[in-house]
């Protein structure tokens, strides 16, 4: 909107420049606090065990130990774990997108008997701490023969398992899209599937990207689900496999942080590209008038 302002009133360009400089100052200061722990992780990952133990270097490593990253990649079957993670993450993203968008459309735009009750039930599923339903869930999966497979991590996503957050979020977004758009589509003879596919989904791109980002992060970083539900170590994901570096007795803080950094990098890259779509959103969605 700053740009629009500049276009309308060219005389204010100078004031805009001052405002931008101020903005940069505020943002830069704040971002120092927000990036600090990441730097701490990085520098810890680059230290030698002796440095860490005896505190010869306070914050910066004396000689960066890039080999810690090599170790983290080579002593575990890194690429097998990575592949396993991708299988789970991609399918969970797909499943969640499918089940969350359909349910959100039903809650946002359709009148059906019992809708409001189902909505409250959906919210209620978020309110129970997962620990207390863990054992019954595990017993259920054991009984339907899913143990020893990846199914417990993947199938629920296609049926809205863990999707209540996204259903609610997308419902809020769908509700914000002007109803006139779908009404005029109905007059043109479109059915609900067409409205859903041709109007709602394309217009909710930033929201869908947010859902994808969050599901990616959730599935990528989740070690507890794979830990409990996977019984075959050949199915282990990266998040779980890298836990081998968690402080064992006499553990290695440097290796642990190297592993953590490896986990963080893909998430950061995805976030960086995902948020770019928010800028596109500003300039290219004129149709929403």
């Amino acid at each position: 909107m700053t740009e629009a302002l500049g276009r309308v009133l060219p005389g204010l360009r100078h004031r805009r420049r001052i405002r931008n400089a101020l903005l940069h100052l505020v943002l830069l200061t704040a971002s120092v606090a927000f990036t600090f722990p990441f730097l701490w992780m990085l520098f810890t990952a680059l230290k030698t065990p002796a440095e860490l133990l005896q505190g010869t270097a306070a914050f910066f490593p004396s000689v960066p130990q890039w080999s810690n990253f090599v170790t983290a990649v080579t002593v575990i079957p890194f690429f097998m774990y990575l592949m396993n993670s991708l299988i789970v993450v991609v399918l969970v993203m797909l499943g969640t997108l499918f089940s969350a968008t359909t349910a959100a459309y039903a809650f946002a735009r359709l009148e059906w008997r019992g809708r409001d009750v189902w909505f409250v039930v959906m919210l209620a599923t978020l309110m129970i701490p997962i620990q207390v339903i863990l054992i019954p869930t595990y017993i259920l999966y054991a009984h339907i023969g899913w143990l020893g497979t990846r199914l417990p991590l993947i199938v629920p996503a296609f049926f809205g398992g863990g999707a209540a957050f996204y259903i609610f979020m997308l419902r809020q977004f769908f509700k914000g899209i002007p109803k006139e758009l779908s009404e005029s589509a109905i007059i043109d003879g479109a059915n609900h599937f067409q409205i859903f596919g041709r109007i709602m989904l394309p217009l909710s791109k930033p929201a869908l990207i947010t859902v994808m980002l969050f599901t990616f992060m959730g599935a990528w970083n989740d070690f507890f689900g794979p830990l409990i539900f996977l019984s075959n170590p050949d199915h282990w994901t990266l998040a779980l496999g890298l836990r081998a570096f968690q402080l064992q007795f006499g553990g290695r803080f440097d290796l642990m942080m190297a592993a953590a950094i490896l986990m963080v990098i893909p998430t950061l890259l995805i976030f960086f590209f995902a948020q770019k779509s928010f800028i596109e959103g500003i300039t290219f969605t004129g149709i929403k008038g």
Partner: peptide, 23 residues
Amino acid sequence: ENLIGYLFASPWITGLILLGAFP
């Protein structure tokens, strides 16, 4: 619309009944 509503919500409702209800 009642039917279509349930149809759209059916993946989630199915999952809730088959996988969520017991735990």
